[in-house]
Amino acid sequence: MAFAAAANRLLVGTGPAVHTDGPRFDPKLPGCWLADLSAEAAALDPRLPSPFTPNGLPPTGPAWYATPTLAYAQELGLTVRPTEAWLRPEHGPYLDAWYTRLRDAYMATMAELGVHTSLTDSAFLQAMAEYKNNSDHPLPQTAVLSAIKSTVKGGIGKLRERPQGAGYRPGESWPALERPTWRPDIRAAVISTARVNMHRKMQKLATAADLHPIAVLSDCAVYLSDGPSPLDFLPRTPEGKPLPGGFRLGVSPGMVKHEGTQPLLWAVQLLDERHNPARHIKGHDAAADGE
């Protein structure tokens, strides 16, 4: 649901794209911008993945970026000077109704499974554990929950549907290109926003509590902890509240849940074998299972 949360209040184009040479960057204007962040991005904290590339490695030259990524670059203090862009002067929060319907369905279904917004952090973890322990005897709501998540993932994925079938030859057109839902720019903006949201939270933990992840995969971050629970390492304010701007446990889209805990030597072995612990923290291959 991190990607659903990224769609909330996201400005996307509702009209045609317009090409512009030498534009001045506007963080409120949806589009795709050609810019070179490689020089200044190299100075960012190497203990965090780069927010400017899909693989987390620093950029090595000019690249096309969605507006949320360059807006975050400015937030981090980088100089943003695009050389050209495809921009959408007509725009609005087109995905809001889609997000709201799915959010409400998700929250209502989770409430039926015993996971409510009013739970304390410890009670939330307990409720999630009980829900997972019942996976061998799934309730009808479990199927509804799966359908909601698939709608989010599939809906975003269909915005850039790839060629289907073994008979496709590179360079040929395919039916998805003719559909009104062919909007790779919207998909890019959602993914960009989700990646920025994730990096901003990791950055907050790094600067405020000197906590750095040892592995990251999409919307999952793995941290070292003195105990098996997220409560054993997530920082709190002097008043005992979650650190503002960091990871917050909860059921609402944009909040986080406990993916799993493994022994330190397990993570060390995976890292030695050049595998990503965030991919296997649940005890199975999250990417292979479609997560």
Rank of each mutant, 00 (worst) to 15 (best):
V268A: 09
K158T: 06
P180F: 09
D36T: 04
G13P: 11
E75S: 10
A267S: 14
A4G: 08
A39K: 13
Q203L: 14
E273N: 14
P93Y: 05
L95C: 08
R9H: 15
R274Y: 02
D136N: 11
M107Q: 13
A208I: 03
A105R: 14
G56L: 00
T69W: 00
T53Q: 04
H212L: 15
A63T: 00
D45I: 08
H212E: 10
E40S: 12
N8V: 07
M255I: 02
K204D: 01
S192A: 15
G283V: 09
L270F: 03
A7T: 11
K282R: 14
A4H: 00
A147C: 04
Y99W: 10
W266E: 07
G240L: 01
S192W: 06
L270Y: 02
V196S: 00
Y94G: 00
A147G: 07
Q269I: 09
I214H: 04
A123H: 14
L249C: 10
T181G: 06
D289G: 11
P238V: 01
E90H: 09
S225C: 03
G13S: 13
S38W: 04
P253S: 06
A2D: 09
S38M: 04
V216D: 07
A194G: 08
A111W: 06
H116M: 12
P228H: 11
Q74C: 13
F124I: 08
V256C: 06
G245E: 03
L44H: 02
E40R: 11
L243Y: 08
P263M: 02
T100Q: 09
K201F: 02
P93W: 05
D104Q: 14
T69N: 02
A17V: 06
A127E: 09
A188N: 14
A215F: 12
A209S: 12
W98H: 03
A288C: 02
L265W: 15
P54M: 02
R279P: 01
T67V: 05
I191K: 05
T237E: 05
P180K: 02
L249N: 12
F247I: 06
M128G: 12
D21T: 11
P140Y: 02
A66N: 15
R187N: 07
